[in-house]
């Protein structure tokens, strides 16, 4: 039976149905999983290029195109979430 999802700000996600992976597999998974590393203040921001929506147009944005200007980069969990 489907259950009602609790509505929050994080996007609900699912996963494969079935047996939990063996302990060994889980360990292997953890070692291959990339550990998130926070960037350092005072160090260059990692450059990137991303698809973008801007004033009615689909375009792309490359961070290094904004050298010479102050940039505020904001990330958020998802469109249509509440905060």
């Amino acid at each position: 039976m489907a259950e009602n999802l609790e509505v929050g700000c994080a996007r609900p996600t699912g996963g494969p149905v079935g047996q939990a992976p063996e302990e060994n597999d889980r360990e292997a998974l953890q070692t291959t999983k990339e550990e998130p590393t926070m960037i350092q203040v005072g160090k260059p921001a990692p450059d990137f290029i991303s698809p973008a929506y801007h004033k009615g147009q689909f375009t792309s944005v490359k961070l290094s195109d904004y050298l010479g200007q102050w940039v505020v980069l904001c990330l958020y969990p998802g469109d249509f979430t509440f905060v």
Partner: peptide
């Protein structure tokens, strides 16, 4: 990109609420 800035939550599949101030030299 979120991963390269350290704010992607791999388990939830979404970005955390990160805000970066980057100066004209591209430095955070």
């Amino acid at each position: 990109v979120g991963s390269s800035f350290g704010v992607y939550d791999e388990d939830a599949g979404v970005e955390n609420r990160g805000r970066f101030i980057i100066d004209p030299d591209g430095v955070v």
